[in-house]
Design a binder for these strands. Structure first.
Lengths: 207, 207
DNA sequence: TCTGCCATTAACAGAATTGTTAAACAAATT
DNA sequence: AATTTGTTTAACAATTCTGTTAATGGCAGA
């Protein structure tokens, strides 16, 4: 059993190092030797376990996407049904932000490496749509009834999602600039943005 | 004179090809031979004119940043002073969006290639602050008086700028996904987002 | 204890990519 | 026409990076 744990440790070490390297430098900027070094193994080991750089990259994408989807579904599930539509949107948005802030390079990585590539995009679209399909129809219904009951100022689902994702992604990305541009810590900046995003969405949904 | 024009054409051709290559693939993903091919010259010419890939990259950054700054200052200058604060913010935001939509890979390029690198970031910060310094103090005053006169719902300058830049950058980035995710053209999506961004900002500024 | 399997290492091979050089060439100047 | 200057080309050198291989060592089960 000890050897299996050892094996997992090596694999895990490589995956962790690879995640860091790929997310911060992108596929072409990442170096397999650098990954191996970070993981504390010879670079032959990396090829032994993952064959090629491409295959290793795909593993990283898989886990990253899985985590992303999980974070959204979790946040959505953990909702209090007694809350108003507005409160629920804000709750999901904030949960989503917390996840994304933990991996702030993720959004720009997605935009730079995944979305432009047709194959990579297809890959994650399939995964996402099978995992998020039911959530989407659920959302659609909830939004429709909110629109019809005149609870909120009318808005389409794509624009609402776009608003939330946009504000959160940009918060994560720009948080890396906080200390460089404004003289505040990243945490302070994120707290400010969180508040501001909430104001924006609430005002948007109010009639 | 003909030879000078020729020289400019070659240089320009390389610069144009390099801009496309660097913006879409990033520094490490870009290939100097691919740039040379696109420009229709041998790849030795590229080195003859620009010495190294790094130097060529710096030239691209220079022009890209210059264009970005110009677009903002132009948009700000072209303002109608008789407009309300809210209307002016919207006008500048829309002008900025039009520029950015012409180069939709620009935001993710900046986030992936420029901002994480301390040297590159320093470079553009200097340029930007010297060019945008006066604009910043101007903005500060305008916003302060708007805040004090209770024209608008109170907001800090960093958050206002962050809102505008965020919404525009995200619109540009996500516009590349419009046809892939929703069944609409990029132009339709941008038009929708433009409208939505305007709604968001106006509601944000209203008391 | 022997055998076979798996993990690991070090050295190396191969490919891709950047950068150089020497020679040819073209245009302008004397 | 000869010289000079700067441009262009093709071949090549150098490096960097990915991927392979053959040899080593340990450990489990026969």
């Amino acid at each position: 059993m000890a050897e299996k744990e050892d094996k997992m440790n090596v694999e895990k070490a490589i995956l962790d190092a690879a995640t860091e390297e790929f997310l911060s430098k992108g596929f072409s900027g990442a170096r397999t030797v650098a990954i191996a070094e970070k993981a504390g193994v010879t670079h032959a080991m990396l090829h032994y376990y993952f064959r090629t750089k491409e295959k290793l990259f795909e593993c990283i994408i898989d886990t990253v996407i899985k985590e992303l989807i999980d974070s959204v579904t979790e946040a959505y599930k953990r909702q209090d049904a007694s809350l108003s539509f507005e409160d629920r949107v804000v709750a999901v948005m904030n949960a989503h932000l917390d996840f994304i802030i933990a991996k702030p390079q993720l959004p720009s990585f997605l935009f730079m490496e995944i979305f432009p590539s047709t194959e990579n995009f297809k890959l994650i679209k399939e995964k996402a749509s099978s995992a998020l399909g039911s959530l989407n129809t659920q959302l659609k219904e909830t939004l429709e009834s909110a629109n019809n009951n005149e609870e909120i100022d009318n808005i389409s689902l794509p624009m609402l999602i776009s608003d939330v994702v946009t504000l959160n992604a940009a918060t994560a990305i720009s948080s890396q600039l906080a200390t460089k541009l404004l003289n505040i810590t990243k945490e302070e900046y994120v707290a400010m943005r969180k508040q501001e995003n909430e104001i924006l969405i609430r005002k948007r949904l109010k009639k």
